[in-house]
Protein backbone atom coordinates (compact mmCIF):
# COMPACT_ATOMS: atom_id res chain seq x y z
CA UNK A 1 0.00 0.00 0.00
CA UNK A 2 1.50 3.32 -1.11
CA UNK A 3 0.87 6.91 -0.12
CA UNK A 4 -0.24 9.34 -2.84
CA UNK A 5 0.55 12.59 -1.04
CA UNK A 6 -0.13 14.35 2.24
CA UNK A 7 -3.11 16.21 3.65
CA UNK A 8 -4.42 16.70 7.18
CA UNK A 9 -7.37 14.63 8.32
CA UNK A 10 -9.10 17.84 9.43
CA UNK A 11 -9.18 18.94 5.80
CA UNK A 12 -11.20 15.82 5.11
CA UNK A 13 -13.71 16.98 7.71
CA UNK A 14 -13.94 20.49 6.28
CA UNK A 15 -14.28 19.31 2.68
CA UNK A 16 -16.93 16.77 3.63
CA UNK A 17 -18.90 19.37 5.59
CA UNK A 18 -19.21 21.61 2.53
CA UNK A 19 -20.52 18.66 0.53
CA UNK A 20 -22.84 17.57 3.34
CA UNK A 21 -24.24 21.08 3.56
CA UNK A 22 -25.25 20.77 -0.09
CA UNK A 23 -26.72 17.30 0.35
CA UNK A 24 -28.64 17.65 3.60
CA UNK A 25 -30.51 20.83 4.63
CA UNK A 26 -30.72 19.58 8.22
CA UNK A 27 -26.97 19.66 8.71
CA UNK A 28 -25.90 22.52 11.00
CA UNK A 29 -22.28 23.34 11.85
CA UNK A 30 -21.25 24.81 15.20
CA UNK A 31 -17.82 26.05 16.12
CA UNK A 32 -16.17 27.40 19.27
CA UNK A 33 -13.88 30.06 17.80
CA UNK A 34 -11.77 27.63 15.73
CA UNK A 35 -13.17 27.97 12.23
CA UNK A 36 -9.76 28.03 10.56
CA UNK A 37 -8.53 25.00 12.47
CA UNK A 38 -11.62 22.95 11.65
CA UNK A 39 -11.45 23.95 7.94
CA UNK A 40 -15.13 24.84 7.71
CA UNK A 41 -14.91 28.26 6.05
CA UNK A 42 -16.27 26.72 2.85
CA UNK A 43 -19.42 25.57 4.65
CA UNK A 44 -19.80 28.98 6.31
CA UNK A 45 -19.46 30.86 2.99
CA UNK A 46 -22.10 28.76 1.31
CA UNK A 47 -24.48 28.20 4.25
CA UNK A 48 -24.07 31.14 6.64
CA UNK A 49 -27.56 30.62 8.09
CA UNK A 50 -26.67 27.05 9.07
CA UNK A 51 -23.44 27.98 10.81
CA UNK A 52 -23.48 28.87 14.52
CA UNK A 53 -20.50 30.61 16.06
CA UNK A 54 -20.61 30.00 19.82
CA UNK A 55 -17.36 31.64 20.83
CA UNK A 56 -15.04 30.18 23.43
CA UNK A 57 -17.86 28.43 25.26
CA UNK A 58 -17.77 24.71 24.59
CA UNK A 59 -20.21 23.69 27.32
CA UNK A 60 -22.84 25.98 25.81
CA UNK A 61 -22.03 24.59 22.35
CA UNK A 62 -22.80 21.03 23.47
CA UNK A 63 -26.10 22.11 25.01
CA UNK A 64 -27.11 24.09 21.92
CA UNK A 65 -26.26 21.08 19.78
CA UNK A 66 -28.50 18.90 21.97
CA UNK A 67 -31.31 21.42 21.48
CA UNK A 68 -30.86 21.57 17.71
CA UNK A 69 -30.96 17.78 17.57
CA UNK A 70 -34.10 17.71 19.72
CA UNK A 71 -35.82 19.83 17.09
CA UNK A 72 -34.68 17.56 14.23
CA UNK A 73 -31.45 19.17 13.05
CA UNK A 74 -28.17 17.28 12.63
CA UNK A 75 -25.63 19.41 14.50
CA UNK A 76 -21.89 18.95 14.00
CA UNK A 77 -19.87 20.57 16.80
CA UNK A 78 -16.33 21.65 16.04
CA UNK A 79 -13.43 22.36 18.32
CA UNK A 80 -10.19 20.72 19.45
CA UNK A 81 -10.48 17.18 20.83
CA UNK A 82 -9.52 18.33 24.31
CA UNK A 83 -12.33 20.88 24.43
CA UNK A 84 -14.72 18.45 22.71
CA UNK A 85 -14.46 15.86 25.46
CA UNK A 86 -12.71 16.48 28.77
CA UNK A 87 -13.89 20.05 29.10
CA UNK A 88 -17.52 19.19 28.39
CA UNK A 89 -17.86 15.60 29.52
CA UNK A 90 -20.85 16.16 31.76
CA UNK A 91 -22.69 18.16 29.09
CA UNK A 92 -22.12 15.32 26.62
CA UNK A 93 -23.09 12.71 29.17
CA UNK A 94 -26.39 14.25 30.26
CA UNK A 95 -27.64 16.42 27.40
CA UNK A 96 -26.38 14.27 24.50
CA UNK A 97 -25.57 10.63 25.34
CA UNK A 98 -28.13 9.91 28.08
CA UNK A 99 -30.71 11.94 26.15
CA UNK A 100 -30.04 10.04 22.88
CA UNK A 101 -29.40 13.17 20.85
CA UNK A 102 -28.31 12.98 17.23
CA UNK A 103 -25.23 15.14 17.78
CA UNK A 104 -21.94 14.69 15.91
CA UNK A 105 -19.02 15.71 18.12
CA UNK A 106 -16.24 16.46 15.66
CA UNK A 107 -12.84 16.88 17.25
CA UNK A 108 -9.67 18.09 15.61
CA UNK A 109 -6.10 18.27 16.93
CA UNK A 110 -6.44 14.96 18.77
CA UNK A 111 -3.38 13.21 20.13
CA UNK A 112 0.26 14.11 20.49
CA UNK A 113 0.70 14.79 16.76
CA UNK A 114 -0.69 18.30 17.17
CA UNK A 115 2.86 19.07 18.25
CA UNK A 116 4.19 22.37 19.47
CA UNK A 117 1.14 23.52 21.46
CA UNK A 118 2.15 20.98 24.10
CA UNK A 119 0.39 18.72 26.57
CA UNK A 120 -2.40 21.17 27.51
CA UNK A 121 -3.84 20.51 24.05
CA UNK A 122 -2.56 16.99 23.32
CA UNK A 123 -5.48 14.97 24.59
CA UNK A 124 -4.71 11.26 24.76
CA UNK A 125 -7.63 10.22 26.96
CA UNK A 126 -10.58 11.20 24.78
CA UNK A 127 -11.30 7.76 23.32
CA UNK A 128 -11.42 6.32 26.84
CA UNK A 129 -13.93 8.93 27.97
CA UNK A 130 -16.13 8.68 24.92
CA UNK A 131 -16.22 4.90 24.59
CA UNK A 132 -17.36 4.63 28.20
CA UNK A 133 -20.61 6.46 27.39
CA UNK A 134 -23.51 4.10 26.61
CA UNK A 135 -24.67 4.48 23.00
CA UNK A 136 -21.77 6.64 21.85
CA UNK A 137 -20.17 5.71 18.52
CA UNK A 138 -16.42 6.42 18.48
CA UNK A 139 -14.56 6.84 15.19
CA UNK A 140 -10.90 7.72 14.58
CA UNK A 141 -10.21 7.85 10.83
CA UNK A 142 -6.69 7.31 9.51
CA UNK A 143 -6.26 9.77 6.62
CA UNK A 144 -7.88 12.56 4.63
CA UNK A 145 -10.11 10.37 2.49
CA UNK A 146 -11.29 8.21 5.38
CA UNK A 147 -12.13 11.30 7.44
CA UNK A 148 -14.24 12.52 4.55
CA UNK A 149 -15.97 9.16 4.23
CA UNK A 150 -16.55 9.01 7.99
CA UNK A 151 -18.05 12.52 8.05
CA UNK A 152 -20.58 11.49 5.39
CA UNK A 153 -21.33 8.23 7.18
CA UNK A 154 -22.05 9.77 10.58
CA UNK A 155 -24.59 12.14 9.05
CA UNK A 156 -26.57 9.07 8.01
CA UNK A 157 -26.27 7.39 11.41
CA UNK A 158 -28.95 8.41 13.93
CA UNK A 159 -27.41 8.89 17.36
CA UNK A 160 -24.46 10.51 19.10
CA UNK A 161 -21.05 10.12 17.48
CA UNK A 162 -17.52 11.14 18.46
CA UNK A 163 -15.37 11.72 15.37
CA UNK A 164 -11.69 12.24 16.15
CA UNK A 165 -9.13 13.60 13.72
CA UNK A 166 -5.89 15.55 13.73
CA UNK A 167 -3.82 18.56 12.84
CA UNK A 168 -0.71 17.56 10.85
CA UNK A 169 -0.40 16.84 7.17
CA UNK A 170 -0.46 13.05 6.96
CA UNK A 171 0.12 10.42 4.24
CA UNK A 172 -2.97 9.66 2.17
CA UNK A 173 -3.49 6.03 1.21
CA UNK A 174 -7.23 5.34 1.50
CA UNK A 175 -9.03 5.68 -1.83
CA UNK A 176 -12.59 5.67 -3.04
CA UNK A 177 -12.29 1.91 -3.43
CA UNK A 178 -12.04 1.45 0.32
CA UNK A 179 -15.63 1.50 1.44
CA UNK A 180 -16.29 3.04 4.84
CA UNK A 181 -18.95 1.51 7.00
CA UNK A 182 -19.42 2.43 10.67
CA UNK A 183 -18.43 -0.55 12.82
CA UNK A 184 -16.76 -2.48 9.98
CA UNK A 185 -13.02 -3.05 10.15
CA UNK A 186 -11.01 -2.43 6.99
CA UNK A 187 -8.41 -5.03 6.09
CA UNK A 188 -5.42 -3.33 4.46
CA UNK A 189 -3.11 -6.32 4.04
CA UNK A 190 -3.35 -10.06 4.46
CA UNK A 191 -0.86 -11.93 6.64
CA UNK A 192 -0.39 -15.00 8.75
CA UNK A 193 2.07 -14.27 11.58
CA UNK A 194 0.49 -11.34 13.43
CA UNK A 195 -2.62 -9.16 13.39
CA UNK A 196 -1.90 -5.46 13.69
CA UNK A 197 -5.04 -3.54 14.65
CA UNK A 198 -4.44 0.17 14.18
CA UNK A 199 -6.54 3.32 14.32
CA UNK A 200 -6.03 6.96 13.35
CA UNK A 201 -2.64 8.30 12.32
CA UNK A 202 -0.88 5.13 13.48
CA UNK A 203 -2.46 3.08 10.70
CA UNK A 204 0.21 4.52 8.42
CA UNK A 205 2.92 3.55 10.93
CA UNK A 206 1.50 0.02 10.97
CA UNK A 207 1.63 -0.14 7.16
CA UNK A 208 5.26 1.03 7.18
CA UNK A 209 6.14 -1.49 9.89
CA UNK A 210 4.47 -4.31 7.97
CA UNK A 211 6.46 -3.46 4.83
CA UNK A 212 9.75 -3.63 6.73
CA UNK A 213 8.75 -6.82 8.54
CA UNK A 214 7.82 -8.44 5.23
CA UNK A 215 11.45 -8.08 4.09
CA UNK A 216 12.43 -9.96 7.25
CA UNK A 217 10.00 -12.77 6.45
CA UNK A 218 7.26 -11.73 8.89
CA UNK A 219 3.78 -11.80 7.41
CA UNK A 220 1.56 -9.07 8.91
CA UNK A 221 -2.19 -8.67 8.64
CA UNK A 222 -2.88 -4.94 8.97
CA UNK A 223 -6.45 -4.14 9.90
CA UNK A 224 -7.74 -0.61 10.26
CA UNK A 225 -10.19 -0.32 13.18
CA UNK A 226 -11.59 3.12 12.37
CA UNK A 227 -14.64 2.49 14.55
CA UNK A 228 -13.50 1.82 18.09
CA UNK A 229 -17.10 1.54 19.25
CA UNK A 230 -19.00 -0.49 18.21
CA UNK A 231 -16.03 -2.80 17.74
CA UNK A 232 -16.01 -5.18 14.77
CA UNK A 233 -15.60 -8.27 16.94
CA UNK A 234 -16.10 -10.71 14.08
CA UNK A 235 -13.30 -9.26 11.94
CA UNK A 236 -10.92 -9.19 14.91
CA UNK A 237 -11.65 -12.77 15.96
CA UNK A 238 -11.40 -14.02 12.34
CA UNK A 239 -7.95 -12.51 11.96
CA UNK A 240 -6.66 -13.58 15.37
CA UNK A 241 -7.84 -17.16 14.90
CA UNK A 242 -5.43 -17.27 11.96
CA UNK A 243 -2.44 -15.27 13.28
CA UNK A 244 -2.60 -16.18 17.01
CA UNK A 245 -0.99 -12.93 18.17
CA UNK A 246 -1.87 -9.24 18.21
CA UNK A 247 -0.39 -5.75 18.19
CA UNK A 248 -2.59 -2.69 18.65
CA UNK A 249 -1.46 0.79 17.59
CA UNK A 250 -3.09 4.08 18.45
CA UNK A 251 -2.24 7.71 19.20
CA UNK A 252 -3.90 7.58 22.62
CA UNK A 253 -3.23 6.41 26.15
CA UNK A 254 -2.85 2.64 26.28
CA UNK A 255 -5.14 2.74 29.30
CA UNK A 256 -8.65 2.97 27.92
CA UNK A 257 -7.99 3.01 24.20
CA UNK A 258 -8.48 0.68 21.25
CA UNK A 259 -5.99 -1.80 22.70
CA UNK A 260 -8.05 -2.12 25.86
CA UNK A 261 -11.22 -2.82 23.88
CA UNK A 262 -9.49 -5.54 21.85
CA UNK A 263 -7.85 -7.06 24.93
CA UNK A 264 -11.24 -7.29 26.64
CA UNK A 265 -12.71 -9.00 23.62
CA UNK A 266 -9.85 -11.49 23.32
CA UNK A 267 -9.76 -12.22 27.07
CA UNK A 268 -13.39 -13.33 26.82
CA UNK A 269 -13.43 -15.08 23.46
CA UNK A 270 -9.89 -16.00 22.39
CA UNK A 271 -7.04 -15.44 24.88
CA UNK A 272 -4.04 -14.38 22.76
CA UNK A 273 -0.65 -12.69 23.30
CA UNK A 274 -1.15 -8.95 22.72
CA UNK A 275 1.21 -5.96 22.71
CA UNK A 276 0.14 -2.32 22.85
CA UNK A 277 1.64 0.63 20.97
CA UNK A 278 0.36 3.91 22.40
CA UNK A 279 1.02 6.52 25.06
CA UNK A 280 2.20 4.81 28.20
CA UNK A 281 0.56 6.75 31.05
CA UNK A 282 2.38 10.03 30.42
CA UNK A 283 1.62 13.60 29.39
CA UNK A 284 3.29 14.87 26.21
CA UNK A 285 5.27 18.08 25.59
CA UNK A 286 6.05 20.61 22.86
CA UNK A 287 7.86 19.39 19.77
CA UNK A 288 7.39 18.42 16.15
CA UNK A 289 4.95 15.66 15.28
CA UNK A 290 7.74 13.33 14.15
CA UNK A 291 9.93 13.94 17.20
CA UNK A 292 7.03 13.43 19.60
CA UNK A 293 5.85 10.18 18.03
CA UNK A 294 9.41 8.90 18.20
CA UNK A 295 10.10 10.03 21.77
CA UNK A 296 6.82 8.68 23.16
CA UNK A 297 6.97 5.32 21.43
CA UNK A 298 4.33 5.61 18.68
CA UNK A 299 6.55 5.29 15.62
CA UNK A 300 7.27 2.58 13.05
CA UNK A 301 10.13 0.96 15.05
CA UNK A 302 7.81 0.66 18.07
CA UNK A 303 5.28 -1.27 15.99
CA UNK A 304 8.06 -3.54 14.64
CA UNK A 305 9.36 -4.22 18.14
CA UNK A 306 5.87 -4.94 19.44
CA UNK A 307 5.27 -7.40 16.58
CA UNK A 308 8.45 -9.30 17.40
CA UNK A 309 7.55 -9.46 21.08
CA UNK A 310 4.02 -10.62 20.34
CA UNK A 311 5.24 -13.36 18.01
CA UNK A 312 7.81 -14.51 20.58
CA UNK A 313 5.00 -14.96 23.13
CA UNK A 314 2.96 -17.33 20.96
Amino acid sequence: MESYGKKATRNGYGDAMLELGRQNPNVVALCADLVGSLKIQGFIDEFPERFIQVGVAEANMMGIAAGLATAGKIPFTGTFANFSTGRVYDQIRQSIAYSHKNVKICASHAGISLGEDGATHQIMEDIAMMKALPGMVVINPCDYEQTKQATFAIAEHHGPVYLRFGRPGWPMFITGEHKFEIGKALQLSEGSDVSIFATGHLVWKAIEAAKQLETQGVSCEVINIHTIKPLDEEAILDSVSKTQCVVTAEEHQILGGLGGSIAQLLARKMPTPIEFVGMNDKFGESGTTADLLEKYGMDTPNVIEAVKTAISRK
Binding site: M61, G63, I64
Partner: peptide, 30 residues
Protein backbone atom coordinates in the same frame (compact mmCIF):
# COMPACT_ATOMS: atom_id res chain seq x y z
CA UNK B 1 -34.90 11.81 31.48
CA UNK B 2 -35.79 10.80 27.96
CA UNK B 3 -34.21 7.38 28.38
CA UNK B 4 -37.41 5.61 29.49
CA UNK B 5 -39.50 7.51 26.95
CA UNK B 6 -41.58 9.64 29.33
CA UNK B 7 -43.81 11.86 27.16
CA UNK B 8 -43.23 15.57 27.76
CA UNK B 9 -39.53 15.35 28.57
CA UNK B 10 -37.17 16.26 25.73
CA UNK B 11 -33.77 16.20 27.41
CA UNK B 12 -32.34 14.90 30.67
CA UNK B 13 -31.65 17.45 33.38
CA UNK B 14 -30.42 17.32 36.92
CA UNK B 15 -26.77 18.06 36.50
CA UNK B 16 -27.31 21.80 36.75
CA UNK B 17 -26.65 24.62 34.34
CA UNK B 18 -27.37 22.87 31.06
CA UNK B 19 -31.02 23.57 30.31
CA UNK B 20 -30.70 27.10 28.98
CA UNK B 21 -28.19 26.02 26.34
CA UNK B 22 -30.50 23.25 25.16
CA UNK B 23 -33.45 25.66 25.04
CA UNK B 24 -31.35 28.05 22.94
CA UNK B 25 -30.58 25.24 20.49
CA UNK B 26 -34.28 24.51 20.10
CA UNK B 27 -35.04 28.20 19.69
CA UNK B 28 -32.42 28.44 16.92
CA UNK B 29 -33.93 25.42 15.18
CA UNK B 30 -37.36 27.07 15.32
Amino acid sequence: ATHEGLPGVRVASGSLGQGMSVAIGVALAK
